[in-house]
């Protein structure tokens, strides 16, 4: 490969080359800015989890690992986290079960009232959270039910159902009906077909829906604020302590959740790839 530079090959002037490179990569440059915007507060939160701040975590005072070593150090923070996790898990289980059943009904069967069913699923998503939260609180008050743990769980299940239905329905819609027909053709009755073919194939959609439900529930503030009464979830803890300064432990928990979620996703992808590669 000893090619001499051939004068007969026309060269592109450097300036034109630069503008062409810029033109081709404009969208990538733009994307880098977009991601920077997304991650500035994440990095800020992460950095300030190491702040040797004392009470108010507003100004950088020095690096320390104490907050990470003692994440429950600030009063109430771990109790709030525990509440959020408990509520999140319960809301996930119930909304996933109810939503999956609805998704199968709408995604699989033609029946009278199917389009109004779709509307009923769409409406909670088109209603502002504040209206959902406020109206549910009014109902609880009418029936003299005190706001608290279970009313919050109910509120979360209510707004998660629609998201579960939409996610699972999309997966069901992408399922080739011939696979179920093939199972029936191969001597599997309706129940076996569901257990051995339909469910395993829809399972990734259900898992995705459950993950979505948990993250929606875990991060919800507005609806929770209306229905939790004296109970405090993690977002509520952050909101109420914002006035007097958020303890760095809250940053630790936020960062830890972020890292945990990222690890789970990456591990999931890694396992998925390994399964594909191992022929």
């Amino acid at each position: 490969m000893n090619k001499q530079k051939d004068a007969t090959i026309p060269t592109i002037p450097a300036k034109a080359r630069l503008s062409r490179w810029f033109g081709r990569n404009l969208i990538r440059i733009y994307a880098v800015f977009g991601f920077t915007y997304l991650f500035i507060p994440v990095l800020y939160t992460f950095a300030f989890s190491f702040n040797d701040s004392g009470k108010s975590n507003l100004i950088w005072k020095g690096f320390t690992l104490d907050n990470w070593k003692n994440p429950c150090g600030a009063p109430e923070v771990c109790a709030a986290l525990g509440n959020s996790i408990k509520i999140g898990l319960l809301a996930t289980v119930f909304s996933t079960i109810l939503g999956t059943m609805i998704a199968f009904a709408i995604g699989r069967y033609a029946f009278k009232g199917r389009s109004s069913s779709n509307l009923l699923i769409f409406l909670p998503m088109a209603t502002p959270e504040i209206v959902l939260g406020a109206s549910l609180l009014s109902l609880f008050l009418v029936f003299h039910i005190n706001p608290g743990f279970w009313p919050t769980v109910i509120a979360h299940v209510m707004f998660c159902i629609s998201f579960v239905v939409v996610t699972v329905k999309a997966r069901i819609a992408s399922l080739d009906p011939r696979l179920e027909q093939a199972a029936m053709d191969l001597y599997a009755n309706e129940l076996e077909t569901f257990r051995r073919v339909t469910l395993p194939l829809v399972a990734p959609g259900i898992a995705g829906a459950a993950l979505l439900a948990f993250s929606l529930s875990f991060d919800d503030f507005i609806i929770t604020n209306f229905n939790s009464g004296t109970l405090k979830t993690f977002p509520e803890f952050v909101y109420t302590s914002a006035a007097r300064g958020i303890p760095a432990q809250a940053n630790v928990i936020g960062s830890a959740m972020f890292i945990l979620a990222l690890l789970i996703v990456i591990a999931g992808q890694f396992v998925g790839r390994r399964v594909k590669v191992s022929k």
Partner: peptide, 13 residues
């Protein structure tokens, strides 16, 4: 991913 850091923490950030 930013979802997993509570949106309140990010807004306060």
């Amino acid at each position: 991913a930013p979802f997993f850091v509570s949106f309140l923490l990010r807004t306060i950030a």
